[in-house]
Design a protein around this nucleic acid. Structure first.
Lengths: 228, 228
DNA sequence: CAAATAGTGTCTTTCAGACAATATTGT
DNA sequence: ACAATATTGTCTGAAAGACACTATTTG
């Protein structure tokens, strides 16, 4: 390959699908666009990759700049790249999309590049509501999340540092959109090596027996998996 | 986001990890580079994305131009993007990598951009033998393939249109690097709905009972999975 | 005590793995 | 007949799903 005028350069951006579980629904972090095209529409946080910057660093930086949210040790993985020639009317752009998971407590604050930053329940993302091809990117992020709950400990990334098995079950129920048997879920989760680590502490939900608190285990893959 | 000189453009390429099973090993399709940098080293087939071209089309086109292999209906999926700022000494490049699977019969012929095109057993890909970061990309492609054999019918993409259960088992054994019990494999594969479809025909391996021939089924996910 | 939530036990079915047994071919 | 490969059957253990039951708290 050669770098000649035969090969015009391309604008490369990163966009981040940030998901959390709150108020009983799966919610996505979105910003309101302050510029054309799609001014006033909602979009995924994201922006241009800088010359000497890694893709993952760019995703983390743009998220912080636009929403004030610091990923820190939170889950961040590459989702895929989106490069349909007509995806941006201004120029040829390729967007490298990332998927991030945050616990319920994270609160965005609008940044410099965006007029507004908010959590929106994913079921309220209707066709045409998001700018560019961000609806497809978000869908892919949600589908990836659904699949990874089965064989990875990703669900713990939606919880705080300490969580109950009921907290974890609610994450699965909301993301998979169906109820799970509490007793079978308890047995499976506590029997999967390295998934969760018991602490000495408990948490009371008001009435009812207090639940034991757990922290994330070291496992990267779940054996056996928590099948959908 | 805005298109100003603050956002220098980037060169976007596609690289393709093409895998096949032949001569008892998992082999990758590689081309010998005719130009600097890394002249004479082996590399993944790939090249620049054209202005009005989809990423997937670019992958398919570059593969054909450099190796003469036509993917046609063969398996092709996006693997991920690689954009470390120092991955190409000439300029900032981001490569969108694809994973393709071909049956044993495919034979490459060197194309215009490459001096040579060949199948190389993946165990012969030693550190430093490939150009750029292609070794990491290849590793990711192999790991993706290993994982997808479990829950998708990807293994059939390594076989011809008609194949025996022993053919399919050999694909699993070679890619996973361990032997599988032939009788249990037979029961699982033929019991997984939509994985393989029996034909009326059989094939004889010389001595021994002839094996029934099958074609690919319509399933996209395997239920139950063929666990590693 | 009643209600509510957490957690355990039991039973049935499905499936994986080990391995025996049968089927069908070439030599 | 014998060797080789394909295919089916049998047994055991792990794990899933349904659901009864026990445990521990608040009102």
């Amino acid at each position: 390959m050669s770098f000649t005028s035969e090969h015009p350069p391309v604008y490369v951006t990163v966009d981040v699908v940030v998901l959390t579980v709150r108020a009983g629904s799966l919610q996505a972090l979105l910003v309101r666009r302050g510029e054309e095209p799609h001014q006033g529409r909602l979009a995924l946080p994201g922006g241009f990759v800088r010359p000497a910057e890694d893709l993952e660093s760019a995703a983390s930086r743009e998220l912080w700049e636009e929403t004030g949210l610091d990923l820190g040790p939170a889950h961040l993985e590459q989702l895929g790249s989106y490069g349909r020639p007509d995806r941006d009317p201004r120029a040829r752009t390729v967007s490298v999309a990332y998927l991030a998971i945050l616990p319920t407590s994270a609160e965005p604050t609008p940044g410099t590049d965006a007029a507004e930053a908010l959590w929106l329940p994913t079921e309220q993302v209707t066709p045409g509501r998001l700018a560019f091809d961000h609806e497809a990117i978000l869908s892919d992020g949600i589908e990836r999340t659904r699949a990874k709950l089965e064989y990875s400990p990703l669900a713990t990334a939606f919880c705080g540092d300490e969580f109950t098995i009921a907290d974890l079950r609610q994450v699965y129920e909301i993301i998979w959109g169906r109820e799970l048997d509490a007793s079978n879920f308890h047995r499976k989760v506590s029997g999967t090596n390295g998934f969760i680590v018991p602490t000495e502490r408990t948490r009371s939900q008001g009435r009812g027996r207090p639940a034991q608190l757990f922290t994330r285990g070291a496992a990267v893959q779940l054996h056996p998996a928590i099948l959908r």
